[in-house]
Each structure stands twice: as C-alpha cells, then as structure tokens.
Amino acid sequence: MAKTIIHFSHATFGFPGVIALKDVSLEIAEGEFVGVIGPNGSGKTTLCRAILGLMRPLEGSLQIFDCACEELRCHHRARIGYLPQKGALDRNFPITVLEAVMMGRYGALGLFRRPTKQDREIALEALSNVGMQDHRNAALGLLSGGQQQRVFIARALAQQPQVLLLDEPTTGIDITTQHSVLDLIRRLHRDLGLTVLLITHDINMIRSLVDRLVLLKTRLFAAGPPEEVLRPDLLSQVYGKDLVITEKDLVIVEDYHH
C-alpha cells in the first residue's frame, strides 16, 4: 500500500459563521486519482484550500506530507499544483501567457533565484501539453475563458507538482479540449505517479477516470470506488433528488421516466 500523503482526521473547516466542512476523515495515498463531487456549496473548494494550508482546522487535524496543514511551508506548497475554480480575471492586466505560466515556477525556485532557461523550457512544455504553445506571447486578457483555463492548467503543471488539485478543470472548455486535458491528466497520473484530486460536477466524465470518488456535502458522505459511491440512495441524500445511473449516464429520475 502506498504512503498516505493527505490525511484528514475528524477535520472541520469554516469561515466566520459558516461551517464548510464538518468532521471529515479521509486518507489519500501517494499516486491515487481521487474525484470529488457534491452540490454547490458542499465544501469542495474549501477541501482544496485546506490541503494547500490556506485554512486552519477548527477541529481535528489535516496532515499533508506528514506536516500539519497550519504549519505547511512554502516548499511544501510548491509541490502542490493548484488550478483554482474559475474566477473573474482582470482582462486588462498586462501579462502574457508565458509570463503567467512562468509564475508556476516561482514557488519552486524560492526567493533570490531568477528563472533560468530551463524554467522557461518547463513552462513552454507545460503550454504545449495544453495545446497553447502558439499563444505564448499573446496577452492573457485577450484569450477566451477556456483558453485562459488551459493556461492556468499549464501554470499548475509548470510547478512540476507531486500533487495536483484541480477545481473544476473542464468547466468552460470545449469538448475536444476537455478530452485532451483529461487525457493529459490521466497520462501525468499514470506516467509520473502524480497524486490527483479532481473536483467536478460532471459525474459521468469522472467515474471512468478515477480510483476513488469522494461525495461531499459539508460532511463526507462516501468515499470509495465509483460504483460504490454512485448509489442512488447516497446520491439522493446529497443532491435531494432521485438520481439513477443508467448504462452510461446519470439522470434525474423524473426526467428518466418521461
């Protein structure tokens, strides 16, 4: 059994007046591919931010690389590649695509060290992995939303991370790019032994991809192989509607009967 690198133990996280994650216990092993699903506001993004050490547990504990999350240091964070959930980007911010991807190298470089030619090559390779190498000198603000998303994936990859946290990576990306991005993530996971945590609302897309699925709604409702987690009773508890899984698809029961 591979080593545990992320270990939630009865951990509770929240904001003033809000509990976002309650009493979560979960172990993620090195090299695992874990999918996270749950309705809006169920604490998926909070789970990522907790793993990055950006929040303190209110109760319980969370260990990453054998380090308590509230004591996570910069060199630990540099080993975690993070694609934030798509947010608003200031379109006038003067930055080129390559400049943005190079920022992925900064944490690993540490203070006082300048990016070298090698860092540049790593950034360019990350860009070509998402099919954006031809746009390297383009203004980031002038790209489409999906193209920007691909650039941010490239930035996470440019970190050459050990753990990849992807918060809805395929949202807003066209279907062919979705496939190539997921293919890339699968390849990185398989070839480099990357530990991947992928948040998504696209249950059909994710279930064939992951080793384990985590079903969240503030509490951890289930964690295990997709076929164990995607049980109608569990899903209806979490989503509040009856869901059924057909051969290929997951549909809301009312629609299914029509």
């Binding site: 990055l52 060199h75 964070r77 993070y82 920022m103 900064y106 944490g107 470089l109 203070l111 990016p115």
Partner: peptide, 22 residues
C-alpha cells in the same frame, strides 16, 4: 531582488500563496 514575487502577488496574491510564494 523580489521582483518575481512582487509581480506574482500583484497578479494574484492567493494563487501566489498557494503555489509556495511567501
């Protein structure tokens, strides 16, 4: 000396923090 970190926090401070910049 700190230009790369300063650019990064100007662009996105939380992202900078998350990727290992103090």
């Amino acid at each position: 000396v700190f230009s790369k970190e300063l650019y990064f926090i100007a662009f996105d401070q939380e992202m900078a923090e998350a990727s290992g910049v103090p």
